[in-house]
Write a protein that binds this DNA or RNA. Structure first.
Lengths: 388, 388
DNA sequence: CTGAAAGCGCTTACAG
DNA sequence: CTGAAAGCGCTTACAG
C-alpha cells in the first residue's frame, strides 16, 4: 500500500490514461505537443495515482539535479543563520532543493572541494564568507556549475557583498568625529588558518580611517578573539591589561561589541561616558543593547544572491556572473558619545593605579549612563567635586 | 576539459583498467569478489580519471538516495540553528547529504507532506518541534522511510525530547520554593495555528506546578507573545497593565525572559528585588543576563537523533524506532530571589497608583540589584526611611 | 574471480 | 499530435 503509493511510475500513469509514456512525460513537463483531451486524461491519472517524477531518473536522463548547495563555515552564528533563511526561501520558491554543507577548519575544507563531494550532485554552489585558496577555486571551477559567493569576490564567480572596508572606516570615522583618537579595534584572529575575508576587510577599514585622519596606528590598541561575545570580552580584557588605554573601541562584529560592553562594565567603566563602543552588523542584540553599529540586511543579501544562483542554475550558460553590492549604514545609538573634554576617565598614562584607583572610574556627569545588568556593583556616589 | 573531468564514467575507468564495468563497480563499492591485482589497477585508473560515482545513476539503480531531510519551522532562532549544527555534523560524518526544508505557516505545511516533495528523494526525515496533524502523519508514513522527531513523539516514529512539562514545573517550583505565589507565565500564543508541542507542554508544566502547590491559576497572570525578545517584552507589558501583578515571571523561553527583563527595567522594576524571572533553554544570552533558567543541550540532541536517523536510513527495516530523552536541569543565576517579606514592591492590590507612584518602585535594599543597560534612567536615591 | 545483460524511471530526438 | 527506441550511468543477479 504505502509502497504502491511511493513507487508509482510514469508507465502506470500512461497505462491508466491509455497513452504512451512519452506523452505522459511531455504533458507533465508542459513541453507542449499534447492535445488538450489527452492532457486532461493524463492529469487525472497522475493525480489519482499520486504520481511524482523520480528525481533520480530525471537527473540521470537530463543531467540536471534540481539541487543547489550552500557551504557555510558556521551554522549557528546569527549572520549565517540569517543568510541561510533568505537563501532557503528563494531556492524553495524556485522549486529546487537546498543541500547544506558545513565546512569547519581548513583541513576539512581540502576534501570538500577537491574530492568530488559536490560533483554531479548540484546545479550550483553558494559559498558564504570563505576566503578560497587557489586549488579550491580551481576545484570549484572544475565543478562546471555556477558558483556564487557571499562576502568576497573571485573571477568568474558571482557574488554579493557589502563594502566591509568602507563600512568599517565609517564606523571608525564616526568615533573620530566624536573627538576620539585612542580608538582600539577588537577583531578576529588575523592568524587563524581559515582567515575570512570579512575580518580582513574590516581590519583594513579601521586602519584606513585612522590613516586618513593622521592618527598613528598603535599595535597596543589592537586585540583579537573569536567573533563571539566571549571573544569580544577577552579581547577587551586584553586591551585593559595594557598600559595604553582606549577612549573608544571599534568591534568587528556586534557579538564582540557586546562582549566589550560586558568586560567594560565588569570593571566599572561606563559606556559611553568613559569608553565609546561601536559594533558591526546590527545583530538583533544590538538594538537591545542600544549599540551604535553598522547595519546590513543579511536576509535580503541571501535572497538576492539566491535569486541569481537559481537563474544561473536553471539556465546554464545564459547567465553571466554578477558582482552585487549591498548597502550598509551607520546606526547611531547610545554607546558612542563625544570624547569628554577634561581628560579623566582614561588617562593615556594609566600607570599603576588603573584598576585600584576608584576615583577615575567614575564620572560625575552620568546622564545617559549605561550600567551592566549583571556586573555593576552598586557603589557610593561621589560628588562631582571629588574629581576636580 | 573541466567538462571531461566532471563526466568521467565507470565505463572509462573500466576501459583504462582493462576490465569490465561490473568489476569496477564491485571493486569501488568494496563488495568483494575482485582479485587484488585488478582491484589495484581499478583504483589507479579511477584515481587518475578523478572518477566519482554519479549519484543520480546510483540512486536510480539502488533506490537509495544517500540523502536525509531536516524540516524546521524556524532557521534563525537559536534552538533550531543549534540543533541543525548537531544534525549536520553527524549526517556529514556518515557521508550522507542533508536537505534543508523550512516550513512556515500551516497552510504551507499542507503541501509539504501531502505533495510528494520529500517522496523518492530522501532515505529519512527529521521533523523539528512540529505538532503534526493526522493527515500529515499519514503522509509521512506513506513516505516509507524512517521518520524522526525532535520535541514530540508519534507512534512509529523515532524521537528525542526533553521533559518540557516536567522542566517547566521545576522552574515554577523553584519560584514557589522562594515564597512566590503570584507567578505569571509569558508564553507562546496558544491559539496560533501551528501550535508547537513545546509551548503546549511548557504551559501545562506551569499549571501543574501551581496546582500541585494549591496555588489557584489566575488568567490575569498569563500573557502571550512570540518566542522572541519582542514577544516577551510585549507580554510583560500586557501583564503590567492588569490590576493583578506578579512577584515572579516564568517565561517559556529565554528570549521571552530577556524581553521581560527589558520591560521590567524600563518601568523601573528591579530584578530580582521586585520581580523574579526564570527562563527556559539556557540560550547563550541567558548567561550574559545572569538569567535563572532550565538548561538543555540542544546540539547534543541534534547529534543523538541524527545518529539514530543515519542508522535507520542506512539499514532500512533493521532499526526499530526509539524514544530518546534528553536531560534538563535548573541553572540558578541572579534573576530569581526569595520573595521580600514585607509586602512593598508589588502589592497584590496595585490599584491606580501603580505606574505613577514613584515611591513603591524603589527598594532600599538594593544589593544584587540588576539595572538595565539601556532603559534605566538614573534617579535620585531615596533614603530607606522614606518607605516606612 | 569475471563479464554480459537486464533494469532502475525518466527524457529526448526520431519517425510516423 | 503520438509512439517506439535509445540512452543517461549505475547495480545486480545470472552465467561462465
Amino acid at each position: 500500500m504505502g509502497r504502491g503509493l511511493v513507487k508509482t511510475t510514469i508507465k502506470e500513469v500512461a497505462g491508466m490514461a491509455g497513452v504512451s509514456p512519452s506523452s505522459v512525460s511531455r504533458s507533465l513537463r508542459g513541453v507542449g505537443g499534447v492535445s488538450t483531451s489527452t492532457e486532461e486524461r493524463i492529469r487525472e491519472a497522475a493525480e489519482q495515482l499520486g504520481y511524482s517524477v523520480s528525481p533520480a531518473a530525471y537527473r540521470l536522463a537530463t543531467g540536471r539535479t534540481g539541487t543547489l548547495a550552500i557551504v557555510m563555515p558556521y551554522l549557528t552564528r546569527w549572520f549565517f543563520a540569517e543568510l541561510l533563511g533568505g537563501v532557503e526561501q528563494v531556492v524553495r520558491e524556485a522549486g529546487l532543493d537546498l543541500l547544506l554543507y558545513h565546512v569547519g577548519d581548513s583541513e576539512m575544507r581540502q576534501s570538500y572541494f577537491s574530492s568530488g563531494l559536490l560533483r554531479k550532485r548540484v546545479d550550483g554552489v553558494l559559498l558564504v564568507t570563505l576566503a578560497l585558496t587557489e586549488p579550491e577555486v580551481d576545484a570549484l571551477r572544475g565543478l562546471d556549475v555556477p558558483v556564487c559567493m557571499v562576502g568576497s569576490r573571485v573571477d568568474g564567480f558571482s557574488s554579493i557583498r557589502i563594502d566591509d572596508a568602507g563600512s568599517a572606516s565609517t564606523a571608525v570615522q564616526h568615533l573620530i568625529n566624536l573627538g576620539h583618537q585612542r580608538i582600539a579595534m577588537i577583531s578576529g584572529d588575523p592568524n587563524e588558518p581559515e582567515h575570512f575575508t570579512t575580518e580582513l576587510q574590516r581590519r583594513a577599514g579601521y586602519r584606513a580611517a585612522l590613516k586618513a585622519a593622521d592618527i598613528p596606528i598603535d599595535p597596543l590598541l589592537e586585540a583579537h578573539g573569536t567573533f563571539t561575545i566571549e571573544g569580544g570580552d577577552e579581547a577587551t580584557v586584553e586591551l585593559l591589561s595594557r598600559r595604553s588605554l582606549p577612549t573608544a573601541i571599534y568591534a568587528e562584529c556586534d557579538e564582540m561589541a557586546v562582549g566589550a560592553l560586558r568586560a567594560l562594565r565588569r570593571v566599572g567603566l561606563r559606556v559611553p561616558a568613559d569608553v565609546s563602543v561601536v559594533g558591526f552588523d546590527d545583530h538583533p542584540m544590538a538594538q537591545y543593547f542600544d549599540l551604535t553599529t553598522i547595519r546590513q540586511d543579511v536576509h535580503d543579501q541571501g535572497r538576492q544572491i539566491a535569486r541569481h544562483m537559481v537563474d544561473a542554475a536553471v539556465r546554464p550558460g545564459e547567465v553571466t556572473p554578477v558582482s552585487l553590492h549591498a548597502p550598509t549604514r551607520l546606526v547611531m545609538r547610545a554607546t558612542t558619545a563625544v570624547l569628554a573634554t577634561e581628560p579623566r576617565a582614561v588617562p593615556a598614562h594609566a600607570g599603576s593605579g588603573y584598576a585600584g584607583d576608584d576615583n577615575w572610574l567614575f564620572d560625575p556627569t552620568d546622564a545617559g549612563q549605561l550600567v551592566s545588568p549583571v556586573y555593576t556593583k552598586r557603589k557610593e556616589r561621589h560628588s562631582s567635586e571629588a574629581h576636580n
